[in-house]
């Protein structure tokens, strides 16, 4: 049977689904999953002043924990791999664009999602980050700060799913980032992906899936739409004709990187061509109501 546990963590709704009899093992596994999310949030959130990430951003250099070290390394590798489209050093640009507190607070303080923010100045991205893995030490370049928002959720989903898999086939969803481990009785994990016309269902037996888009976490500034996806090339909220991209990869963390990179391709046809070339299964949804499956997904 499918057991579920839902809770809030990392500023989003988390849901863990486990296929096994309802017993003490399942209960213990869910408790451990919730605790692991709390632990990772305490290490990786930029909205908590006591987190390892906040201490690193404040000091410019810091000896960090294993998770932050691993995730920062992965984020920098992703920056290389995506030619800079995915960049963890967009922190200053995000703050300049108005995303300087958790979105829960933003929505509470500006309930209309119409925050009257001034035009954000372009912020430099692509800052230097030096990682000394032997000493677990990270040093940021002058004026550089890190945000690991989306990739941190993917990382957490992957880690918790891997741990939960000891109790049985499982699915972990952290907002839009989903990690699955082990095939359920149905054969695959059926995951609904929103499109222009409703939704399609993707069957996933292993790996991860993530959605990156501008349809949530957005606000208006001087009559102009602002959102939290920063284009590192300009340091400003990305200009794209896509609303959202859902990508599938070997892990939720990788899927998050790919989804963001494809969203920053700018237009649907370019993103589809890139996904086809790279063999990245994805669902692309444009502002003008088109849905495109690419990367071998049909």
């Amino acid at each position: 049977m499918l057991l579920r546990r839902s809770f809030r963590a990392m500023g989003t709704d988390v849901e863990c689904v486990l296929e096994r009899p309802d017993d003490a093992v399942a209960e213990h596994a869910f408790d451990a999953a919730e605790a692991e999310f709390a632990r990772l949030e305490a290490a990786l959130s930029r909205f908590r002043s006591d987190s390892g990430l906040s201490r690193l951003n404040a000091a410019g250099e810091h000896t960090v924990g294993r998770d932050l070290l691993e995730l920062a390394t992965a984020a920098l590798e992703a920056r290389e791999r995506t030619g800079g489209r995915f960049d963890p050093t967009v922190h200053e640009a995000l703050v300049a664009a108005g995303y300087d507190r958790s979105f829960e607070l933003l929505e509470r303080e500006f309930p209309s999602s119409s925050v009257a923010l001034a035009e954000p100045p372009p912020e430099r991205c692509g800052g230097s980050v030096r990682i000394d893995r032997a000493r677990s030490h990270i040093e940021l370049g002058a004026g550089t700060r890190i945000d690991l928002g989306g990739i941190a959720k993917g990382h957490a989903a992957d880690r918790v799913a891997t741990a939960l898999a000891h109790a049985g086939p499982c699915l972990v969803s952290a907002g839009g980032d989903i990690a699955v481990r082990g095939a359920p009785a149905a054969g695959v994990w059926a995951i609904a992906v929103p499109t222009c016309d409703g939704e399609i269902t993707i069957g996933l037996s292993q790996g991860g899936l993530a959605t990156s888009g501008i349809d949530r976490r957005h606000w208006r500034s001087d009559g102009e739409e602002r959102h939290h996806i920063i284009d590192p090339a300009t340091g400003l909220p990305a200009v794209t004709d896509m609303v959202r991209v859902t990508a599938v990869a070997a892990s939720a963390r990788d899927a998050e990187v790919l989804a963001t990179a494809l969203l920053l391709a700018g237009d649907l046809e370019t993103a589809a061509a890139e996904a086809d070339a790279a063999g990245t299964p994805c669902v692309l949804v444009s502002r003008d109501g088109r849905t495109r499956l690419a990367g071998g997904l049909s």
């Binding site: 149905a186 609904a192 037996s205």
Partner: peptide, 28 residues
């Protein structure tokens, strides 16, 4: 592509299915 049985014979890691969704993704 239109023949479902071939997909079952050579299962792809990801495909469109008609099963009821267990979870849904959205912009994170």
């Amino acid at each position: 592509a239109p023949v479902q049985s071939s997909s079952v014979a050579a299962p792809a890691p990801v495909r469109i299915v008609t099963l009821p969704a267990v979870a849904s993704t959205r912009t994170s």
